[in-house]
């Protein structure tokens, strides 16, 4: 098997999901400088709602693609409502409070949403039903499944759609104006409450689709999944430069690729039997071409956070971020 090409394909798939989730973080941060830590949970609830719709409709008269579409169409408004309520109930009253207050509230909302999901869907992992045939295509010695193709295509379509919305429509211009200076935008007649609520709702809608993509790809969902997924997508947003849309997309894809490459090669790299110094100490394990791997691919989560640390140390504003002092 061609590990390199295969991991590129896998990395692009997970990276696309990270990118779509990262957009939710970066949009909200761009407009009100809040890290909405509950966004990962919104994605999780999207996956859970889709799971419920699919399991209750599967086996009925509806064709599988229609069921999947129904699941997505059901998950989107649920997540949009949660996104709206988060802003309205939890964050809006704290908009002029010191920045630490909404941040702590965000962490609290994340915990509350996760536990609401626990109460509704239970504590066991759910097998996300694979109701559509998933043919696999070979590219040289690597392969790509139709789920992977769909995820990549859908993500890129959503990213293009969002960019069009933000850069080409009047409301998008108003969003960017509000991000730059909420009070001056107010003088132009922009209702900041509306723009901020819309930012949350749009991010949540993208998150709902990301949740369904995640479930379809990994085949398993759990009420705690929003935490790690959210943290990784947040890392992706920081990597690209938080507040910057293109940065979130780039950061997400890059993070997915680094993670895939890392988990693809870490076993090979940390095989202690390849060096004479260490293999001489591990004679028993290394004989007959055996190996002693220090870190396996189960360490893949490390790479996202390793990258986050490296970015924070060497380029705190992110790859496409502006210098912080620019906001004068």
């Amino acid at each position: 098997m061609d590990i390199f090409l295969q991991q590129i394909i896998n990395g692009l798939t997970t990276g696309s999901v990270y990118a779509v989730v990262a957009l939710g973080y970066t949009m909200v941060y761009g407009v009100i400088q809040l890290i909405n830590f509950a966004h990962g949970e919104v994605v999780m609830i999207g996956a859970m709602v889709a799971f419920t719709v699919i399991t209750s409709l599967a086996g009925g008269a509806l064709p599988a693609p229609v069921i999947l579409l129904t699941a997505v169409v059901a998950a989107i408004p649920v997540c949009m409502t949660i996104g709206y309520l988060l802003e309205r109930i939890a964050y809006r009253p704290l908009r002029h409070a010191p920045r630490l207050a909404p941040l702590i509230t965000a962490i609290g909302m994340s915990i509350i949403l996760a536990h609401l999901a626990l109460m509704v869907w239970g504590r066991n992992p759910k097998a996300f039903p694979q109701i559509i045939a998933n043919p696999v295509f070979n590219i040289g010695e690597a392969s790509i499944s139709s789920v992977q193709i769909s995820i990549i295509l859908l993500s890129f379509t959503m990213m293009a759609g969002l960019s069009w919305f933000v850069y080409r429509t009047r409301f998008g211009i108003a969003m960017r104006a509000t991000a730059e200076d909420v009070r001056i935008a107010g003088l132009m007649g922009v209702n900041a409450d509306k723009v901020i609520a819309a930012t949350f709702v749009i991010g949540a809608a993208l998150g709902a689709v990301a949740g369904v993509m995640y479930g379809s790809y990994y085949g398993i969902i759990h009420y705690t999944m929003g935490f790690t997924l959210g943290l990784k997508a947040f890392s992706a947003a920081v990597l690209g430069g938080i507040g910057n849309l293109a940065g979130a997309m780039l950061g997400g894809l890059l993070l997915g690729l680094v993670e895939a490459m890392g988990s693809g090669y870490i076993g090979e790299i940390t095989d202690l039997c390849q060096w004479s110094l260490t293999s001489s100490m591990l004679v028993e394990q290394c004989k007959d071409g055996g190996n002693f791997v220090l870190f396996g691919s189960n360490y893949q989560d490390v790479f996202a956070f390793l990258m986050l640390i490296l970015v924070l140390v060497f380029r705190p504003s992110g790859l496409l971020g502006e210098r912080v002092s620019e906001r004068a």
Binding site: I173, R176, A177, E180, D181, I184, L187, M188, G189
Partner: peptide
Amino acid sequence: ALVPEGRGIFARLTIAENLTMGAYH
């Protein structure tokens, strides 16, 4: 309408977009 102290233009928006914002309502 107010033209604020220090001008208050949207530095990251284009000139055309700044004018669009002026007519937002």
